[in-house]
């Protein structure tokens, strides 16, 4: 490993972890509690290939107790080394993952991720989906956390509608782009934008 790549591994974490992760968690919690609302999340500078927002989520939520699955594209030497140094989270197979990182296409098929059990629906995967941006909304959202309806741009609709049918089982999604994060929990009903 060259000097340059090794310093990239050690750099890019939170400069003041207790405070930075508190702010990052607040953004993540607001996102999960208010589906479709875009929040600013900053503090991490992960290696090339993953967004600062996704890096913040990983630093805030992952540690040696959580298995992470890196989908093709996000699964680089640099990301693995950065994640190992900063969080100590083990890289695991898709079927065992607590957290999953990748682009929408790379995450397919979704059926392999854990959706929880009827007695413990919380034992399910949280997917961090890297998206190009939060441009034109194509989906209308209803459910907990939403006053009336909300709008959001989603990579497709059918997958999220199928996921909501599983409720209270299912997957929970964060969408990350640059320093922005939004979320879509399993409790949200998704319909095509009228």
């Amino acid at each position: 490993m060259s000097l340059q790549t090794s310093s990239a591994v050690y750099a890019g974490g939170f400069s003041n972890p207790p405070v930075a992760s508190a702010h990052a968690f607040r953004a993540a919690m607001n996102a999960m509690a208010r589906p479709g609302e875009v929040q600013e999340i900053t503090g991490a500078t992960p290696p090339e290939g993953i967004s600062p927002a996704a890096g913040c989520l990983l630093l805030t939520l992952c540690d040696p107790e959580t298995g992470v699955f890196l989908a093709p594209g996000a699964d680089t030497e640099a990301v693995r080394a950065w994640l190992a140094f900063h969080t100590g989270a083990p890289i695991v197979a898709a079927e065992q993952a607590d957290f999953v990182l990748g682009s929408w296409e790379a995450l397919m098929p979704l059926a392999r991720f854990r959706t929880g059990t009827p007695e413990y629906p919380d034992r399910s995967a949280t997917l961090i989906v890297e998206v190009p941006g939060f441009g034109t909304p194509n989906a209308q959202l209803r459910g907990p956390g939403i006053k009336g309806t909300a709008e959001m741009q989603l990579p497709e609709l059918a997958a999220f509608q199928d996921n909501a049918v599983l409720y209270p089982l299912g997957l929970d999604f964060f969408f990350t782009s640059g320093s922005q994060v939004a979320a879509l929990p399993r409790s949200t009903q998704v319909a095509a934008e009228a």
């Binding site: 972890p17 207790p18 992760s21 508190a22 968690f25 993540a28 919690m29 999960m32 509690a33 805030t60 939520l61 992952c62 540690d63 107790e65 959580t66 607590d98 629906p121 919380d122 399910s124 949280t126 907990p144 956390g145 409720y167 209270p168 929970d172 929990p185 399993r186 409790s187």
Partner: peptide
């Protein structure tokens, strides 16, 4: 910090499945 991460993960799952 590790305790806080564990609690934060529980809070996020709690928000995703309200009342559980």
């Amino acid at each position: 910090e590790q305790t806080k991460r564990m609690i934060r993960r529980a809070i996020l799952k709690g928000l995703a499945v309200p009342g559980y």
